[in-house]
Amino acid sequence: MNIFRLAGDLSHLLAIIILLLKIWKTRSCAGISGKSQVLFAIVYLTRYLDLFTTYISLYNSIMKIVFIAASGATLYLMYVKFKATYDHNHDSFRIEFLLIPCVILALIINHDFTVMEILWTFSIYLESVAILPQLFLVSKTGEAESITSHYLFALGSYRALYLLNWIYRYMAESHYDLIAIFAGVVQTILYCDFFYLYITKVLKGKKLQLPA
């Protein structure tokens, strides 16, 4: 555990908490892509299956359980409790276009051809693109509430901080995982345009509004 990794994990946790609080306090999930949230739930479930097989640390296990639970709670709020506020019409990204390539890629490029390893690899690939339906939703509506922007910023920062963590680990421990690094780079690149808008607009108190 190094400072970049810890900061990344905390940023990830913060993102999830911001999202849950936003939905709970406003009693609405307007502007949030249910499809991205479904993809994240799949990511957590397929990656954290190792809760049952491998013990790494108490920290690790607790974080995994929190991510799965928070993801489930988010889906419950979006698809059950505040279903009426869910922005169906704008959330029209076809997730099979992400799921199918990720399954195929995980079957071809993986560290080991075992069920657990392929599921882990699939979850890494899927996570890298899981935000696309959300970014698509923002681009369709042309704007995002500030709180949604904070959520996206925290969520994007998490993988960017992991990139620093991987550089650190490569130098300090000669540890590296090319699959995680490649997917992490892709994931971070997808947020770059948003990061730019966040820094130039949201931090200056303006609403995140895309040029018409």
Binding site: D50, T54, I56, N60, H111, E117, H175
Partner: peptide
């Protein structure tokens, strides 16, 4: 070496 004998990250 690339570790695939247990992923220790989240």
């Amino acid at each position: 070496s690339p570790s695939h004998s247990g992923h220790d990250e989240l």
